[in-house]
Design a protein around this nucleic acid. Structure first.
Length: 519
DNA sequence: TCGGTCACGTA
DNA sequence: CGTACGTGACCGAG
């Protein structure tokens, strides 16, 4: 077993099967974890069908160092949604080799890994890095690590102080109901506080937008819909509208983050657990159970254990920096050398900073309403390469031509266009955004994988990944070391990911007892 | 029971 | 400015 060698592994309670260049060997054992840790010393890159299948049963005791996840790499190569653990025998659950996977032994896994490796090596490397490990291969490493991380995040969970959470919730949504009647009464009480501010509205169902719209008409507000941003202009002039908006906020907490959620998704051990996916859509990680949309007001209740801290790190202005990298625009890369890249952009566009920011975002996301029109034309003059890159992506989306992200993830726009099940939407705008968002997700996962590797052998654990933000739970006395690790890991990752571009990536890092404190 | 719509939280 | 995602209530069709 050589360092970095692709070694496929299958694990059962009493056996570890290994396939390397020398063939397949079955090792009988009554302690698979002890054996795996020993093998890990040699530095293999473990190959498996999916981390969920192979690692999840051992996630309490074994943290593999490096891996090659066939499902994760298959998703990278052909833009699908492979998950072998979910449906090992389903016919649509095949790698892109023209046939369903029947033989699922380690030897076959290793063969497929080698084929995937060749396919990745055949992709063009967008960096000028002759002789280096190709970017798509490094991306495969990171995507594989993210798949393990997803399994570990499910196992570990996010530490929540349920007493503190209840204390935040109670004034907003009422006491924890003791039975259905109590729940209904609490609900009615909250509803009545709003309904009595509107004439003839005692029976209005506040959860029915059509009825709410009629109710608003009775105080002279004729609105096309009842979304909060339409109500917002009237909160200062109408106490009734103000109450309705407040009700909406409370209703959100009561339904999505209420007692039900607390009972269902927070374990007795005070850990909030959801299902994690390492790459959905353009390639971002996703999580259920509200982990990715926890309202800010609840974050003070995300608390480290006694004697521990949360170390938070988030990437600054990551998407424009990613755009500068992936497009190879030297002027934008120059701007991205600064701590605040919108300052030089504003200078180049001869406008103020807020305008510059809107112009950059509008370019990346394909704005439709024309407030940033002038600034966009200036963007074209100042950053023609970046703008051409985005326009090419949009064109590919509109015409249904497949694209790859910077790291090599296939964006199957051809499939999207011909599949009429997809809702009618602008695939041009989707593609324009996906090449940036997807590449940013790749950088983020590579960073997270490096942090994960640096935490090996310590008690610290990553407990949340939030698109551009990492949260690590660690003993208080190690907090500074963890913060250093997160900063160093970013520098190391950016060094190969953005090599030659000159783009700098920056992280804001803070330590606190709660998520809210770590700002 | 199911998909569609509305609504809204996060990045 | 806009994209992405997950969640939940309600509606109307089946």
């Amino acid at each position: 077993m050589q360092p970095g060698e692709l070694v496929a592994v299958g694990i059962t309670d009493d056996q570890v099967s290994i396939a390397d260049a020398g063939g397949t060997t079955a090792h009988r054992t009554d302690d698979p974890v002890e054996l795996l840790r020993r093998f890990d010393e040699a530095g293999p890159r473990w190959v498996w069908w999916s981390a969920r299948e192979t690692v999840a049963p051992w996630a309490n005791a074994w943290r593999p160092r490096a891996c090659w996840d066939l499902a994760a790499v298959a998703r990278l190569l052909d833009g699908g949604h492979h998950d072998f653990a979910a449906a090992p025998n389903a016919t649509d659950d095949m790698l892109d080799f023209g046939a369903p996977v029947v033989d699922r032994g380690p030897a076959r896994a290793r063969e497929i890994a080698l084929e995937q490796l060749e396919n990745l090596r055949a992709l063009p490397d967008p960096r000028a890095q002759p002789g280096a490990v190709p970017l798509a291969v490094l991306t495969a490493y990171a995507e594989s690590a993210a798949a393990v991380l997803a399994v570990e995040l499910e196992h570990t969970g996010l530490p929540v102080d349920t007493t503190a959470m209840a204390a935040i919730l109670r004034p907003v949504i009422g006491e924890r109901p003791v039975d259905d009647a109590h729940a209904a009464a609490t609900r009615r009480h909250r509803d009545d506080a709003v309904r009595r501010l509107f004439p003839h509205s005692d029976d209005v169902d506040l959860r029915n937008p059509a009825q709410v719209r009629e109710m608003l008409a009775r105080i002279g507000l004729d609105l096309p819909d009842t979304r909060s941003w339409r109500l917002q202009p009237h909160v200062d002039t109408s106490p009734a509208v103000r109450a309705l908006v407040a009700w909406r906020k409370a209703e959100r907490l009561a339904t999505t983050y209420g007692w039900n959620w607390l009972d269902r998704d927070v374990g007795a051990d005070g850990r909030l657990r959801g299902i994690w996916h390492a790459a959905e859509g353009a390639g971002r990680m996703t999580a259920s159970a509200g982990l990715h949309n926890l309202p800010a007001e609840l974050r003070p209740a995300v608390r480290a254990d006694p004697g521990w801290v949360l170390v938070r790190a988030d990437l600054g202005q990551v998407e424009p920096r990613v755009l500068a990298t992936v497009s190879g625009d030297e002027a934008l890369a120059d701007a991205a050398r600064q701590d605040d890249m919108y300052a030089p952009v504003a200078a180049a566009l001869r406008c103020d900073r807020p305008t510059a920011k809107v112009a950059v975002l509008a370019a990346m996301y394909g704005q439709t309403s024309g407030t940033a029109g002038n600034a966009l034309r200036d963007m074209d003059r100042a950053y023609p390469t970046a703008m051409a890159y985005l326009r090419a992506a949009e064109e590919a989306g509109r015409t249904g031509r497949d694209l790859r992200t910077y790291g090599g993830r296939l964006l199957p726009l051809h499939r999207a266009l011909e599949d009429s099940r997809y809702p009618p939407m602008s695939w041009g705008r989707f593609a324009r955004n996906a090449v940036v968002q997807g590449a940013a997700a790749e950088l983020f996962k590579a960073w997270a994988a490096t942090v994960r590797a640096g935490l090996a052998g310590t008690e610290g654990e990553i407990v949340l990944c939030l698109h551009d933000e990492l949260l690590v739970h660690a003993p208080a006395e190690t907090a500074d070391a963890v913060a250093d690790l997160m900063r160093t890991a970013l520098a190391q990752t950016a060094h190969w990911w953005a090599s030659g571009s000159g783009v700098r990536f920056v992280a804001d890092i803070a330590i606190g007892a709660s998520w809210a404190d770590a700002h």
